[in-house]
């Protein structure tokens, strides 16, 4: 696989188009929610992301964002992965994703755990793009704190 294909795996290109969770949703009555806005001043990518919880379980993530295919695909993958997951479990997933992203390619991504998020392992070899991949995940982390 060329460097470009490692970076832009088909899963990523597909998610960049599907954009699961695109469009902020109002939380249902009785549900807790938290929000975060993240911005990458280098490229202007931004995301407004909302986490909706029923007790400690994540019901839904929704977001409005603009950015490159990596950042939008990362938001989409996260949204899909997070639905129905316990809050602490999502925090663990975010930590794992971050570890892979920061590893410059030395840490393998566990597909069993990270699902489509494992396709981002190739991004870790492109340090300039790691921030793109992390944007939505950092937003989710911050939104969870805000919801607490």
């Amino acid at each position: 696989m060329s460097g470009l294909e490692q970076l832009y795996q088909q899963i990523i290109l597909d998610h960049a188009k599907r954009r699961v969770g695109d469009g902020l949703q109002e939380p249902a009555p009785g549900h807790a929610s938290g929000e975060s806005h993240q911005h990458n001043p280098i490229c202007g990518d931004q995301i407004q992301l909302r986490v909706e919880l029923d007790g400690t379980r994540i019901v839904r993530i929704s977001w409005d964002g603009t950015g490159c295919s990596i950042s939008m695909a990362a938001a989409s993958v996260l949204t899909e992965l997070a639905e129905g997951v316990e809050r602490d479990e999502l925090i663990g997933l975010i930590d794992q994703f971050r570890e892979v992203m920061r590893s410059r390619g030395s840490v393998e991504a566990d597909e069993e755990v990270l699902g489509d998020g494992a396709a981002f392992a190739g991004v870790a070899k492109f340090p300039a793009r790691v921030k793109c991949a992390m944007l939505a995940w950092v937003a989710a982390e911050t939104a969870l704190l805000a919801a607490a």
């Binding site: 470009l4 490229c43 990518d45 950015g67 490159c68 295919s69 990596i70 492109f126 793009r129």
Partner: peptide, 19 residues
């Protein structure tokens, strides 16, 4: 997105500015 354009061009050896 321009970031993706720049990355694609880089893979062809073409250095441009994006942002």
């Amino acid at each position: 997105h321009p970031h993706d354009v720049g990355q694609f061009l880089d893979a062809r050896g073409v250095a441009v500015r994006v942002g």
